[in-house]
């Protein structure tokens, strides 16, 4: 029972292409560069199509595609020291946004004033392994187990990376909101 190239292509088009938005967003956060992100997605898609017979129908296609994307990034796209300063996660570890603003803004209304670009910029300043975990979880909604498979670390590591990444992001966005005057600094 061999499948023809046409059938393979059709299956790929129907099943893999719906994940294009996810692949692009993850690629964009990994490369921080729209044109490199597009090249990365194209390379990953080409690899996926060429090894399509290795994909087991009925298993998790999204995780399979993201694994190919990630491996392609690590092998061909990762550049040392290509990005700006990263956030110091140790500093942010003890920060809890709720402690700073929970009394004054329990519904988090000031979030409404923070624009997309600022959030993306804050995400891009996280160290790579934290950024990647946060994007897979909080943007793409993948469960811990799937992230663990893709990033090849235990579920416990996924959890702790997520925790630290969220804290760091809260700290970063709080500083930004204070600077912009969206919210006043906690007098203490």
């Amino acid at each position: 029972m061999t499948i023809t190239v046409d059938e393979q292509r059709r299956a790929f088009e129907q099943e893999a292409l719906p994940h294009l938005d996810t692949l692009y967003r993850v690629a964009l956060r990994l490369t921080s560069d729209p044109s490199r992100a597009e090249d990365l997605v194209q390379d990953a898609m080409l690899k996926a199509l060429r090894s399509w017979e290795q994909y087991q129908p009925g298993t998790n296609l999204r995780a399979w595609l993201l694994t190919i994307l990630r491996n392609t990034f690590i092998n061909d796209y990762r550049r040392e020291k290509a990005r700006g300063p990263t956030v110091d996660l140790a500093d942010a570890e003890t920060f809890r946004l709720f402690d700073e603003v929970g009394d004054r803004d329990p519904e988090g209304r000031f979030f409404d004033q923070i624009v997309d670009d600022e959030v993306l910029r804050a995400i891009d300043q996280l160290p790579e392994e934290f950024r990647e975990t946060l994007v897979l979880s909080d943007v793409e909604g993948l469960p811990y187990q799937e992230i663990s498979t893709i990033t090849k670390v235990p579920v416990g590591t996924v959890k702790s990376r997520l925790f630290r990444a969220r804290r760091a992001l809260q700290s970063k966005l709080y500083d930004y909101a204070v600077e912009m005057g969206y919210i006043k600094k906690n007098p203490e």
Binding site: E13, L20, L46, L120
Partner: peptide, 28 residues
């Protein structure tokens, strides 16, 4: 609320149309 805000802000981007066309033409 924070997690919803994060998702809403970071998920606004989609794969651009030229990329979609490139995938069709050059991959498929």
């Amino acid at each position: 609320t924070f997690l919803r805000f994060l998702e809403a802000r970071a998920k606004a981007q989609c794969a651009p149309e030229p990329l979609r066309r490139r995938i069709f033409k050059e991959v498929l």
